[in-house]
Computed example of a mutant assay.
Amino acid sequence: MPNHPLRLRFCSIACLIFLTVFCTSCSKNSGTTTAFYYWKQNFNLNKTQVSLLNNTGNGKLYVRFFDIKWDPKANCPYPEAVLHFGKLTPLPDITPVIFITNQTFEKLAVDDLDSLAVKSNALIEKLAKQQQLAYKAIQIDCDWTIGTKEKYFSFLKTLKKISKKSLESTIRLHQVKYQFKTGVPPVDRGILMFYNMGKLSADPAAANSIYNAKDATPYLSSLPNYLLPLDIALPVFSWSIQIRDGKIIQVYGKIGRNELNNTTNFKQTAQKDVYVATNSFFTGGIYVKAGDIFKLEESNKKTLEGAAKQLSSHLNKKDKRTIIYYELGNLNLSAFKAADFKEISTYF
């Protein structure tokens, strides 16, 4: 007996609905927000940077306002590298970021924590007022330890109370895995820093310390149980490790592939991204000795895709989150397109 037309139509509609739901569930998440860090002391965006921000989101930028370090001579904390705005920012959504050394909380007396919070908030307000910035949140970047968690958390509580802003704290992978030892900061959101997970090594054959899947793997199973909602920070930077006589001399962000491909000064070895200096010379105030080895570590679109795929498989894709790329100030704009960042962000 032939199928009834109404029955055929019902089956077609049911199949269409099923396929739509199935495909949607398999697709990447388009509800994420893309943003960037800006870590240079002088704030002065060029047209290309502004265009990138506008084409990847809504101009959302996390700007380092200043660092707080410990002065051993004065025996007190002090602000360093305070941000200088070259002109009024054209961006609508800026979140101030403060970097605080762990040593500050090691040395600071408990009775002085409230004062540090008050002074930090006052400097943030001063810089924001100069730019007429109506910020909604403050982010604190500190690699606290078990020994400093009580002081750091007390500082955060006071800062949140007096600022009346949403508060965020950067989170390292080890602080996720050992959250009940290191503690969970009393903030509204955490920002998981998914980079700098390996140790710098003088071995030219060692894995990329900015990101490699092997070093990340042991920490990821703890992510679903972390007690804070998490945004994600991903790397878009590179550096070169200068090695001499089997020891690390320095790490340079300004020596990249273009400099290392200069055959007047360097020769590429049989190992990928490893170069040797063919003569002694100065570059940008840096002394390079003949025979020095330079190991290039970088992140590119392929690296980001690998990191995003590995990390996102351990996160709830229904959660709304911001993906923040570190960082815009020194970003090689010829290596990435706006579409690359939007594509990577949708993995989450």
Rank of each mutant, 00 (worst) to 15 (best):
K160T: 15
I162W: 04
I162V: 15
K164N: 13
S166V: 15
L167S: 14
T170V: 01
T170C: 01
I171R: 01
H174G: 08
H174Q: 11
Q175R: 02
V176D: 01
V176H: 00
K177L: 14
Y178V: 04
Q179I: 06
T182L: 07
T182S: 01
G183H: 02
V184Y: 02
V187N: 02
D188L: 14
D188Q: 15
I191T: 13
L192F: 10
M193V: 10
M193G: 08
Y195I: 06
N196S: 03
N196I: 08
N196R: 05
M197H: 08
M197K: 02
K199W: 09
K199M: 11
S201A: 12
D203A: 14
A205W: 11
A206K: 06
A207I: 08
A207E: 10
A207P: 04
N208Y: 11
N208K: 11
N208H: 09
A213P: 05
K214T: 15
D215Y: 08
D215M: 06
A216E: 07
A216M: 05
Y219K: 10
Y219F: 13
Y219W: 07
S221Y: 09
S222G: 06
Y226C: 02
L227I: 00
L228E: 01
P229L: 03
L230R: 05
D231N: 12
I232F: 11
P235S: 05
P235Y: 03
V236E: 04
V236I: 12
F237N: 05
W239P: 02
I241D: 00
Q242M: 13
R244F: 11
D245M: 12
G246Y: 07
I248Y: 02
